[in-house]
Design a protein around this nucleic acid. Structure first.
Lengths: 233, 233
DNA sequence: GCGCAAAATTGCGTGTACGTAAATTTGCGC
DNA sequence: GCGCAAATTTACGTACACGCAATTTTGCGC
């Protein structure tokens, strides 16, 4: 249902996007992330440099996109796929942890590179926030019509918690965080005080568990849904 | 503790920052936000353009900083200042709503300008996330040592919820949100589905109320709490 | 096939963010 | 007051994000 008509035109767009992702990742792995210009990526993908910015709004996005790909929709799908018996918090936490913890086989070295480069770390952590949209949909779907605003808020908070866990984990794995000279720190730029140096799954589970009460409270007390949830994908 | 040593040197830095803020706001109000170059701001503040970026990492930051100033620390202070009797969620929600709802007297026209410019709206909404750090401190302080990670997570989530409420409110007040062509949407760039067009206080209270259970559950030694929900694990 | 309108790509120009190293200022001990 | 080390400001160069308009490509009705 989501992929109604691929649309021959749309398909080509996705192909271009994919080509850019692949090219960006390959070049970054080969020459190091700092030595890759957007011109190089665009050149390797066979498009003009201007086109690159039609698909990605920063140099780092294409690289991390090669790893994160469509993680958001996978998480959303995983949430709706959980058996109706489990609580909402359980479903969400399990789905999120699962999707974030398992790196694709070939993504291992890419992850290593990302943890090494501060700029990539930042962008990578920010991808956690992008799951808000799809997840909100999934929340509404699963609970059978929870309040829209509540769904958006909770989904965004899950993303925030995941981002925090990711940042915390990254900062423990990699080097220390360079503090910029600027004053008005952006939300995601502040150095974290927590450096627990645990495993990423544990860390993420711990972070998300703080949200569990809010998630369960938002579910309208119907653990078993009799709704015909026939349409799956 | 926080302001241990004014430090004559530090004072001058803050003066420069203030000068940049004021200049940026004044120029933006006079000529419209789109017609202000960073060179103009730097020039008006009597520093080099490069110095501007030593204090603010984007052109819009200085403008919104003139309005938001030290909102984060005010919120943190407001949280700790609440009487010990009230629940944590109540304290936090009241403090946040209070600080966000009351625009300074002279900030009125500035707020109007911000709602008009999409770029400023974006930056303004993002400032909500910057309260995470101070708020986390306040949470730990008030609850008498809640888990550090939980405090960071909850504080960040409060910021996220506030940001969402702000975005929702801004999109209802101003014009529609232009969708960018790019694919990998950043967390805060996605168009919100919720356009309730309520008053900002109501909106923010509604958004934050979703987090109330999580906040209250995290307060261990709170006055009257029936601890129904045991932590998993 | 033909042609047309929408969509995507491209080139260009502008403004911006930031690394880097030189120049200037500040704080402090003497 | 003197001078030195650290911090701050500054100039310069590079890369980048993006608006805009011209150009090419795509999809579709005929």
């Amino acid at each position: 249902m989501t992929t109604r008509r691929p649309g021959l035109r749309e398909r080509k767009k996705q192909a271009t996007r994919e080509a850019l992702r692949v090219a960006a990742l390959r070049l970054a792995l080969e020459q190091g992330p700092e030595n890759v210009r957007v011109d190089d990526i665009a050149d390797a993908a066979g498009v003009s440099p201007r086109t690159y910015n039609n698909y990605f709004s920063s140099r780092e996005q294409a690289i991390v996109a090669a790893v994160t790909a469509d993680r958001e929709s996978r998480i959303a799908a995983a949430v709706t796929a959980r058996p109706a018996g489990v609580s909402l918090s359980e479903a969400v936490i399990d789905a999120v942890v699962e999707q974030f913890t398992d790196p694709g086989d070939e993504a291992r070295d890419a992850l290593l590179m990302i943890t090494t480069s501060p700029a990539l770390r930042e962008t990578y952590a920010e991808t956690a926030g992008s799951l808000a949209g799809p997840l909100a949909e999934a929340l509404v779907e699963r609970t059978g019509g929870m309040d829209r605003l509540a769904a958006e808020v909770l989904a965004a908070c899950v993303g925030t918690a995941a981002k925090l866990a990711l940042q915390s984990w990254l900062s423990s794995v990699g080097a220390s965080f360079g503090a910029s000279a600027g004053g008005l720190e952006s939300a995601s730029a502040g150095g974290l005080v927590v450096v627990p140096s645990g495993s990423l799954p544990d860390l993420m589970r711990a972070a998300l568990s703080s949200l569990a009460p809010a998630l369960d409270a938002a579910a309208p007390a119907s653990p078993v849904l009799e709704q015909s949830e026939g349409d799956r994908e």
